[in-house]
Simulated scan of single mutants.
Amino acid sequence: MTRLLLPLEHPTATAEHAAEDALLHALKRLPRRVQQVFLLNRLDQLDFATLSARLDLPLSSIERHMNQALQAGRSRLDVLASVAGQWYVRLQSPHVTACERIDFRRWLDADPANLQAFHDTELRWRSLLAPARQLGQDGWYRQGRAALSLGGCSIAMGLGVAALLLFGFWA
């Protein structure tokens, strides 16, 4: 008796790849400056103080951008995840105080759901690595003011050339 061997079909997108694609899409929808801060921290391992100095941004802006990146793609109605994300980002800041660390510990101990939310936030942070690598694969975020779009620069250049041509004809 002969057997008919059929090639195994491989699923086109596993649940893991679908989740990574969703995270990548959410990260791409963030403003370029937020993407840049996130990628410099996540891929180049730059701490908040270094980012602040390098990009000439206040530390509070760095924290806000990092929180935006961490919350990308999450439901805005998930208040507990939002608070856990804010704690996760704040604890990475060089300006976090001992009082804030104590407050964090109290928040964590107040409810098992808080501990679970913080744990989920840590897992989310780890899950953002692969989409971050895809987003920053060409290294655009390492350039000085990468947050400026080329589209805006092209428009400005076009208007400048048009003005020169216009004034050139009048002269």
Results as ranks from 00 to 15, higher is better:
R3A: 14
R3Y: 10
L5H: 14
P7A: 13
P7K: 11
E9D: 13
H10L: 11
T12K: 08
T12L: 14
A13C: 10
H17R: 14
H17A: 13
A18T: 15
A18S: 15
A18D: 10
A19K: 05
A26N: 08
L27I: 14
P31C: 11
P31T: 05
P31K: 10
R32V: 12
V34F: 01
Q35E: 00
F38G: 01
L39Q: 03
L40M: 07
N41C: 07
N41G: 08
Q45S: 14
A49N: 05
A49C: 04
L55W: 04
D56F: 04
P58F: 06
I62N: 07
R64C: 07
R64V: 07
M66F: 02
Q68N: 06
Q71L: 15
A72D: 03
G73H: 06
S75C: 10
S75V: 06
R76K: 11
D78G: 00
D78L: 08
V79Q: 02
A81D: 14
Q86M: 10
Q86I: 08
Y88G: 13
V89P: 02
V89Y: 00
L91P: 09
P94A: 15
V96W: 04
C99F: 10
R101Q: 15
I102P: 00
I102Q: 14
R106E: 10
R106P: 00
W107A: 04
A110R: 02
N114A: 05
H119V: 10
E122A: 13
E122Q: 15
L123K: 15
R124W: 00
R126I: 11
L128E: 02
A130C: 04
P131H: 07
P131M: 02
R133D: 05
G136I: 00
G136T: 05
Q137F: 09
Q143Y: 09
Q143G: 05
G144A: 15
L150C: 02
L150E: 06
G151Y: 03
S154I: 12
I155D: 08
A156W: 11
A163D: 07
W170F: 11
W170H: 08
